[in-house]
Design a protein around this nucleic acid. Structure first.
Lengths: 130, 130
DNA sequence: CTAGTTGCAAAGAGTTTGCATGGCG
DNA sequence: CGCCATGCAAACTCTTTGCAACTAG
């Protein structure tokens, strides 16, 4: 939660919301947003802050060397497991019926309580497997 | 499989074997090995080659910004899921019987093939739940 | 001998930081 | 007005690359 509301922050948040389903790198953001509107350093500073605040979650996309972020303010993400394709970078929401099954097994067999909102399962999605 | 066997490569492979259980970044390697023995650029070039050859596997380490590698000539870690406790920080290895069950469900229900070596499930462990 | 490999230094790429200016509340 | 945020440019760090010298096979 930023202290002030600035035009730059609105632009950045708007961009992030529009890409809420993807995992994007800061570099990508910097290259996508209009540099006339928001400078690179402001992007970096804001991203770091949003990560600190828990609005963005750091994740890694398999086939690049870049650290990526996912926008997690929309609480659709908060309590569900996500699958992340290391090939296309897509983030897939796992239906709660399936998620409950997985977390149930983990709890039963391992005594481990899965934090769904914070767990990302990496692998290869249906389309990319073909 | 390198074409030639050089002293630098032996040093690097020796280092990697000794850290086979860990996920290390190239930066770490560069800082650890004796620069008198092997230059940074040789480390980078060799790591890239070993990755291409499948000897090293790129993987994700949760809380850092670095891309890490794991030596996978020994396939001990390659095929197992890990649980990470948010409270005590412990990393727990999940037995393959349980892991197979989870990945099986994910594949069946979602068509998603889980990359076990790269996935970390966050949550709270048995002891910390009490 | 030949082709792959190395070290060095320079170039690149991405990210962080210091500082003066600007703007939100 | 006070403080936080921004833009710019410089500094930094990590990584890649060009090139001449070296070396394994």
């Amino acid at each position: 939660m930023p202290k002030y509301k600035t035009r730059q922050r609105e632009i950045l948040l708007e961009y992030l919301k529009q890409h809420a389903d993807e995992q994007i790198s800061v570099k990508q953001i910097v290259q996508s947003v209009d540099t006339q509107e928001i400078s690179a350093s402001a992007v970096y500073r804001n991203i770091a802050m949003l990560e600190r605040e828990g609005v963005l979650k750091r994740c890694v996309r398999g086939n690049t060397k870049e650290i990526c972020y996912r926008y997690t303010a929309t609480d659709s993400c908060r309590n569900s497991l996500h699958l992340s394709c290391r090939v296309c970078g897509k983030s897939i929401h796992m239906p709660s019926t399936v998620a409950e099954k997985l977390t149930g097994i983990t709890l039963e067999k391992m005594g481990f309580e899965v934090d769904k909102g914070n767990t990302v399962i990496y692998g290869i999605c249906k389309e990319c497997r073909k």
